[in-house]
Amino acid sequence: MARGGVNKAVVQKARNDLLARGINPSIDAVRIELGNTGSKSTIHRYLKELEAESKPTSQRDSLSEPLTTLMSQLLSQLKEEAHQSVAEVHETLRRERSAVQQQSAVLESRMRDLESQYSNLAQQLHTAQELALREQQQRQVVEIDNARIVQSLVDLEVRLKERDERIRSLEGLHQHAREGMEHYRQASKEQREQDLRRHEAQTSQLQAEIRQLQQTLMVKQEELTQLNRDNARLVTEARQHQKNQHTLEQILSQRHQEFESARSALADMKHTNDKLEQQCQALQGEVARFDEAYAGQTQQVENLQERLVEVTDLLKLFTKISPPENGLAPEKSD
C-alpha cells in the first residue's frame, strides 16, 4: 500500500498534470508533483499500471492529434509571451537609460556653467583685491605726504618763531641803539643814521620773508585741505570696494554651494544609472535562464512528440496484430 495517503488515483492525477504541461512523468517528477510524498517503489508500480491501462485506450489515432495540437498551441503561446515579455523589459530599460543619460547631460552642462561662473567670480574677486591693494597703497602714500606736509608746517612754525625771536631781538637791539644814539647823538649822528638805515633794511627784508612764509603757509594749507579731501574720497571709495568685495565673496560662496549641489546630484544620478545597469544585467540573466528553460521545454516537447510518434506506430502495429473483437494482444505460448 502507498505511504502517506498516496494511492493510484493521486498518482494518475499527478501523471496527467505533468503530461498536460509537457513534462515527462518520471518517478522523481511525479513524487515532486505529489509534494515529495510516497515511496518511489509504490509510485513506480502505479505508473506501470497506468501505462498498461492507457495502452488499450491509445489504439485510436485521434487521441494523439488533439494532444499534439494542444502542445503546439501551448508551445506557440509560451514562445510568444516570452518574446513579448523580453521585448517589454528591453524597451523599459532603454527608456530608463535614455532618461538617465539626458538628466546626466543636463547636470554636466549645468556643472560646466557653474564652473565657468565660479572662474569668472574668482577672477573678479582677484581684480577687486588687486584694486583694493592699490587703493591701500595710494592711501598710504597720501598719508605719508600728509605727514610730510604736517612736518613741513611744523618746521615753518618753528622758523616763524625763530624769526619772531630774531625780530624781538632786533627790536631790542634797535631800542638799545636808539638809547645809545640819544647819548651819542651829537657825536655819532651819521653812524646812527647808517645803523638806522641798516636796521630798516633788515626789518623790510624780514617783513618780506614773513609775508613770503605766510603765503607759503597758505598754499600748504590749501594743499593740505585738498589732500584731506582726496584722502576722504579715497577712504569712501575703499569702503565701497570693500562692500563690493564682500558681495562678490557672498556670490562666490553661493555659486560654490550650487556647484557642490550639482556635483552631488550628478553623483546620485550616476549611482542610479549603475543600479539600472545592474538591474539590466540581472534581467538579461533572467532572460538567458528563461531562454535555457524554453529550450529545455522545447526539447522535451520534441522528445514527447517523437515518443508519441513511436507510441502511435506501436499502437498501429499492435492494432494490426491484435484481434479486432477484444482488442487484446495474444498471449505467447511457452
Rank of each mutant, 00 (worst) to 15 (best):
R3W: 09
R3A: 14
G4Y: 11
A9R: 13
V11P: 00
K13H: 15
A14D: 00
R15Y: 09
N16G: 05
L19S: 02
N24P: 02
S26P: 00
I32K: 10
N36Y: 13
N36K: 05
N36W: 06
T37P: 01
S41W: 09
Y46H: 00
L47F: 01
E49I: 00
L50T: 00
A52S: 03
A52F: 00
P56C: 01
S58I: 02
Q59K: 06
Q59T: 05
P66N: 03
S76D: 03
S76T: 02
S76F: 01
A82S: 12
H83K: 13
Q84D: 06
A87H: 05
V89L: 05
H90V: 05
R94H: 13
R95E: 05
S98R: 14
A99F: 09
V100S: 12
Q101R: 11
L114C: 00
S116K: 13
S116R: 14
Q117L: 12
S119Q: 11
L121E: 00
A122D: 08
E130T: 12
E135V: 04
E135H: 07
E135G: 04
Q138Y: 04
R139Q: 07
V142E: 02
N146H: 15
A147V: 04
L160P: 01
D164C: 08
E165T: 07
R168L: 09
R168K: 06
S169Y: 08
E171L: 11
H174L: 15
H176T: 06
H176K: 12
H183G: 11
Q186A: 08
Q186G: 03
A187I: 07
A187E: 08
A187H: 06
S188M: 05
E190N: 04
E200T: 10
A201Q: 15
Q202S: 09
L206H: 03
L206S: 04
A208G: 13
I210C: 10
I210Y: 03
Q214K: 11
M218C: 12
T225D: 02
A232L: 11
V235Y: 11
A238V: 08
Q240D: 07
Q242G: 03
Q245N: 04
E249S: 07
Q250S: 10
Q250D: 02
I251V: 11
R255A: 01
H256E: 04
Q257F: 09
F259R: 02
S261Y: 13
A265S: 12
H271L: 11
N273A: 15
K275P: 01
K275S: 15
Q279F: 08
Q284C: 06
R289H: 15
F290G: 14
A293V: 08
A293M: 10
G296L: 15
G296C: 14
Q297C: 12
E302V: 03
E306I: 10
E310Q: 14
T312N: 07
D313Q: 06
L314M: 09
F318L: 14
T319V: 11
P323F: 05
L328P: 01
A329K: 11
A329V: 10
E331F: 10
K332V: 04
